[in-house]
Nucleic acid binder design. Structure first.
Lengths: 348, 348
DNA sequence: TTGAAAGCGCTAACAC
DNA sequence: GTGTTAGCGCTTTCAA
C-alpha cells in the first residue's frame, strides 16, 4: 500500500528557513522584483533543495489564473508534418520546464472547436495553432472568440501556419517554396505541369497554389489542377484522375508530402515511370520521404524549428519581452533528389 | 482591449439557484452519493447551463490533489508507430472530456525521466507509457520510483508496451506477431532468413526477436542477426551490413516498420530486387508503409486501438471499476502484401 | 436533504 | 527587507 505522504509545501520550506510564507515565495520566484536579502534568499533555497520542494502547479495556477502548460493544436497528429512540429515544440517546452499538451482535431472543425474550448477551460498559458486556418468565416469567428478568451485570462496564442486571425505567427514561406518548386520544373524544361492542391479552403494550400501559379502563369502555362485532401489516399485519387483525364502532363507539383506519397504509388501502379516519364515535386520534406523510390524532390520546411520558435515566441509574449515583427517567416529550401528530371520527349 | 470578465464560478451557480455551495457542488457531481432532491438538482443544472458554468480544473485539482489530465509518454513522437498510439489515446481522452499531454523523450532516458518527473509534479491523473521499457535496471528503478509517487497521490499508470514493472497493461502480441511473420517466410520456402532487431535492451524488440527465434529454431534455422535502432537510418545500415557480410539470405525479418523502410531503400540502392531476390517483412503496419514499393508485408498492430484501450483502462482504474486481467494482449495480424514471395533459386 | 466552514498551496496587496 | 492576510474555486467533513 503506497503511503500518501504529502510532498513538501512552501509552508514547510518557510518553516525550515524560519521565514514567512511571503518571504519564501519571493526568494524562490526568480521574476520577483521585491527586495530580499541575499542571506535569506540563500537560506530559503538551501532548505527548499534539502526538502526537495517543488511548487504545486495547481495552487499556483489557481492563484495566477493560468496553468503553466503549452498546447499545440494540430489537424492530424498522424500526419508526419505535424508530428515534426510537435516534436520541435515539445522539446523546446520541456527545455523550459513546461509540459506540452497536444490536441488533434482529426481534420474535423467541430472537434477542433471542442479541443480549444477545453484548453480555454484549462487555462493553458499558450496555445500554438500548428495547422493553418480554414477559409470558413463561421468557424474562424468561433476560433477567434475562443482565442480572445484565452487572451483575456492572460494566455497567449501563436500561429504556426497562415491564418486570417492577426495572431503572432511563426510560419514558413509557403508561397516562395512553391514558386521555387515550379521554377525548378520550368528550368528542367517542363511545360505541361499539373498541380495537386490541398483542400481549397485550407490557407496553407492556397498559399502554395498561389506560389505555383505565380511562376507558371508568368511562363504562360496553365497547369491542370486537381484538388486533394492532404492525405496519402487523396494523392492516389488525384493521380488516378489526372491519368484518366488523359492529361499529357510531364510533371506534377503536389502541395504536401503525404499526398505525394500517394501520387507516386498510383503512378507506379499505372506503370508511369518517375522521373523518366513524369517528374514529381512534394512539399514539406517529412522524414518518410527519404525512403520513397525514387527519393523525392521536395520543399524542405524547417518543421521542428518552427515548433520550437513558436514556443519561444509564446514564452516571450507571456513574459512581455516579445520584440520583432508579428509574423516571422521561416525560409524554406528546395531539395532536389531523384524524382525530377528533364521531360521525356515522347510525352507532352 | 479584451475585458477580463471572470467565467462563472460555482458560487455564481449556487447564488442563482438559491442553494449553498455544497448543494450546488453535489448536484453537479454525477459521482456524488449524497442524496439530493430531484427538484434542487434540476434547478442547479438549469442555472449552470444558463450561465455556461464550467468547473475550474485548477481549483478542483488543488482540492482533489490531482489534475484531470492524461499523459502519454513516448520515445519519439516522430515515429509514426507512436503517433498512431497517441492519436488513438488522444481521441479517446477527448471523447471523455479530458485533455491529453504528450511527452517525447527523443530516445533519451534522461529526458524521459525529466518528463515523468514533470508529470508527477503536475499531478496528472494518468500516465500511459507508450514505449516499452529498457532492460536497464538503474533506469527502470528510477521510473518505478516516480510511478509509485504517481500512485501515491492517487494517479494511475498504464503500460502500452512490454515493461518489467507490473503495471496494468494494454499491449500487442509482439511474440505471436513475429512468429507469424517468420512462419510466413518458412511457408514460402525460405531457409536463409536474416533478422534486423531493435536495440537489444528494448523489451518490445526482445519479444519480437524471441518470436522469430521460436519459429526459426524449431525449423532448425539459425538466421543471421543484425541489431538496429528502430530508425529508418539504422535499417539502411543493417541492410548494408548484411549485404557486405556476403550473407546469402533470401528473406529478412525486420523488427519495426521504420527500419524496414530503410532496409528497402538500401536493398534497392544496391540493386537487390524485392521480393524477387529478397523477401522483406516489417512490424507495425504504420500508415506510411502503404506507399512503399513494393507494398510491405508486415504485422499489423492495432496502434490507435491500443492507445484508446489504454485511456479506457486508466479511467476504469481511476474510477475503481477496473475488471479483468492486469495485462490485456491485443492480437496482431500478418498482412501479406507484395514484399514477400517464394525464394529465388539462384540465391541461397 | 441542506448548509456552514475549513482548507488544498500559493501569490500579492498591504502593512510594518 | 520581512511579515500578515485575504483570497483563487472547489470538495468534503460535520452539523443541523
Amino acid at each position: 500500500l503506497p503511503e500518501r505522504r504529502r510532498p513538501p509545501s512552501l509552508a514547510d520550506v518557510a518553516r525550515g528557513a524560519r521565514v514567512s510564507l511571503a518571504t519564501a515565495s519571493r526568494s524562490l520566484d526568480p521574476a520577483s522584483t521585491h527586495p530580499i536579502s541575499e542571506a535569506t534568499r540563500r537560506r530559503v533555497h538551501e532548505v527548499a533543495a534539502r526538502l526537495g520542494y517543488r511548487p504545486n502547479p495547481m495552487a499556483r495556477g489557481l492563484r495566477t489564473q493560468r496553468l503553466w502548460t503549452l498546447a499545440v493544436v494540430v489537424h492530424d497528429i498522424s500526419d508526419p508534418y505535424f508530428s515534426e512540429v510537435v516534436r520541435g515544440a515539445s522539446a523546446a517546452a520541456s527545455e523550459a520546464g513546461l509540459p506540452t499538451m497536444v490536441c488533434s482535431s482529426e481534420q474535423t472543425p467541430g472537434i477542433e472547436l471542442k479541443n480549444i474550448a477545453m484548453l480555454r477551460q484549462t487555462r493553458v498559458a499558450a496555445v500554438l495553432f500548428a495547422g493553418s486556418g480554414l477559409a470558413d468565416t463561421n468557424h474562424e469567428r468561433k476560433i477567434a472568440a475562443l482565442a480572445r478568451e484565452i487572451d483575456s485570462y492572460g494566455g497567449t496564442v501563436v500561429a504556426l501556419s497562415p491564418r486570417s486571425e492577426r495572431w503572432p505567427a511563426e510560419v514558413c514561406d509557403n508561397r516562395g517554396g512553391a514558386a521555387a518548386a515550379a521554377r525548378h520544373l520550368l528550368e528542367l524544361g517542363h511545360r505541361e505541369i499539373a498541380i495537386v492542391t490541398g483542400p481549397h479552403h485550407v490557407r496553407s494550400s492556397m498559399e502554395r497554389v498561389a506560389g505555383y501559379r505565380d511562376v507558371l502563369s508568368e511562363a504562360g502555362i496553365h497547369g491542370e489542377i486537381v484538388e486533394g485532401a492532404f492525405s496519402g489516399e487523396s494523392g492516389e485519387r488525384a493521380a488516378a484522375e489526372l491519368l484518366a483525364a488523359g492529361s499529357r502532363f510531364t510533371a506534377v507539383l503536389v502541395a504536401n508530402d503525404a499526398m505525394t506519397m500517394g501520387v507516386l504509388a498510383e503512378l507506379r501502379r499505372q506503370g508511369v515511370r518517375v522521373p523518366e516519364e513524369v517528374s514529381v515535386v512534394g512539399f514539406g520534406d517529412i522524414p518518410a520521404v527519404r525512403y520513397l523510390t525514387p527519393a523525392l524532390t521536395t520543399v524542405r520546411v524547417p518543421l521542428a524549428k518552427i515548433g520550437a520558435a513558436g514556443v519561444r515566441r509564446a514564452l516571450d509574449l507571456l513574459g512581455g519581452t516579445d520584440r520583432g515583427p508579428r509574423v516571422r517567416v521561416h525560409p524554406v529550401e528546395l531539395v532536389v533528389r531523384q524524382s525530377t528530371a528533364a521531360p521525356c520527349p515522347s510525352r507532352g
